[in-house]
Amino acid sequence: MTEVREVPLTEWLRALDQARAAGFAMLDLITAVDRIGVVEVVAVLTNPDTAQRCRLTTRVPADQLAVPSASSVLDGASWHERETAEMFGIIFTGHPDPRPLILREAPASGVPPLRKASALTERVAREWPGTPSGDDLRRARRPQLPPGVRDEWMSEREPA
């Protein structure tokens, strides 16, 4: 069973520290999820004695992506935060070593790669194999975008 706790941003470090003190001493990962307009930062902790897990989340407005770094509370948070920072464009304030971890260079589009606004070029360039054709196309009320493909990506597509 995974315990799930959503905490306000101001409580983030305290909540992590409390979880650690309650036995969830091992940090599994820190990552984030783009909820469009809001980015959810996620930390998963494990209790090494009981193998129980605890998932903590906090929501950050997408135009103000600053989260206090957990590296003072949890050893091992550093790399996870470096990766989350470059993939989602989050600034972890007070991070001891905020260099990029995985990406050699910042993406040319300026959009961090795991944000929903970051277009998947393969999805834009390739025709969706599920595109309705013939009779099905006539039956379809309006052209439908494949799941996971966003309108704004397609505006850059060359007309066929």
Partner: peptide
């Protein structure tokens, strides 16, 4: 076409 449309990898074609 349900499998084609649900495939997240776009690896099925009919």
């Amino acid at each position: 076409m349900i499998c084609v449309q649900e495939c997240p990898s776009w690896c099925i074609a009919i």
